[in-house]
Design a protein around this nucleic acid. Sequence first.
DNA 1: AGGGCCCGTGACAGAACGGTGACCCAAGCA
DNA 2: TGCTTGGGTCACCGTTCTGTCACGGGCCCT
Lengths: 197, 197
Amino acid sequence: MDARILLVEDDPSIREVTAIGLGAAGFEITTAVDGVDALERFRAEPYDLILLDVMLPRLDGYEVARQVRRTSTVPIVMLTARADTMDVVVGLEAGADDYELRLGNLVIDVGGRTVTRDGTDIPLTRTEFDLLIELIRHAGQVLSRDVLLDRVWGYDYLGDSRLVDVAIQRLRSKVETDPATPELIQTVRGSGYKAVR
Amino acid sequence: MDARILLVEDDPSIREVTAIGLGAAGFEITTAVDGVDALERFRAEPYDLILLDVMLPRLDGYEVARQVRRTSTVPIVMLTARADTMDVVVGLEAGADDYELRLGNLVIDVGGRTVTRDGTDIPLTRTEFDLLIELIRHAGQVLSRDVLLDRVWGYDYLGDSRLVDVAIQRLRSKVETDPATPELIQTVRGSGYKAVR
DNA sequence: AGGGCCCGTGACAGAACGGTGACCCAAGCA
DNA sequence: TGCTTGGGTCACCGTTCTGTCACGGGCCCT
């Protein structure tokens, strides 16, 4: 289980010493010399940990971290050189809910509970949002009304399962470009609903 | 030559992700969930490095660092919030807590526990300040009333979660330019509150 | 082609939710 | 001791949400 580490450090001597040290300790090290280089390497293949200098040419460490966070929750450790030691390090949050889903031209920020299309916000109520998330999490799969009632409204919910239809309709009216011909959330007659994959 | 690391973080998702990442990177990780827990573990056995969240229940990161410093020169590293909200973060050498957060036109000096707008001081009470920090640490993310009660009031707090609403209102009345139309701290109906990103 | 079932949709009323002012107790302080 | 401040609780109210119903159109099967 070799951990793959991306080391981003512009100072050649620090970079080499650290790389050699970590390499000898059994890690698989890739090095990048500046922020742009780091992003390119990160996009090219996955890493288990990023060691990131704050002061970097072209793109500083904070900006690199910000861009990495758009698509990944990989642990990032920020390194800041100090006069005497290297003991200043800043860990960055890798919040579990800090990610975005996609459905067609919609972007869903799960943690922030927002939905946007082309950058403009589409306000949804809590039920609508939860329903949308449930559909997207199982995109391509048909979810029956009973299953949706279970998962969105709670397992103990007793009521008219037509409620789901109404909720779907309300969701579509906000989310579909043309609610009359839904493209994102499809009805599967006799079975339920599904989000397109 | 495994480095022993004490990771102190109350947020379970951050704690686990970081622990797994660093564990995979070959470090020996011990975790603590709050300040008191951290001091107990530190007194029990030695560590080579302490990763310390600033905002902690029971005893905040600064106080933990201060107490550790009485008996040890172990490197202490402060963990902060998200990459995308972080302005300046400074590691703690010997109690030099001087970093600032930002929210709209507010500047928050975490160490000094002051909030200023355009250079003028906005006095906040302790609860208001802690609440503000917690929201800013997760800017853009919706925090439920329960989570806020956990993190701001302490996880053992049992009480009316409407308390959060009142605290938010009091905070807004001091911090928002127009409290009637909040721009910095938004209500997400049915879910909770969030600070704008 | 006809009938039955399924689903979309508009309307409505009750429920849920959150903002807010008020009250009061406890802690801190002079 | 008496005053001040912070903060937890409560009640009220306007707004928003949402569960239900009824109607009608369309799809499928025979």
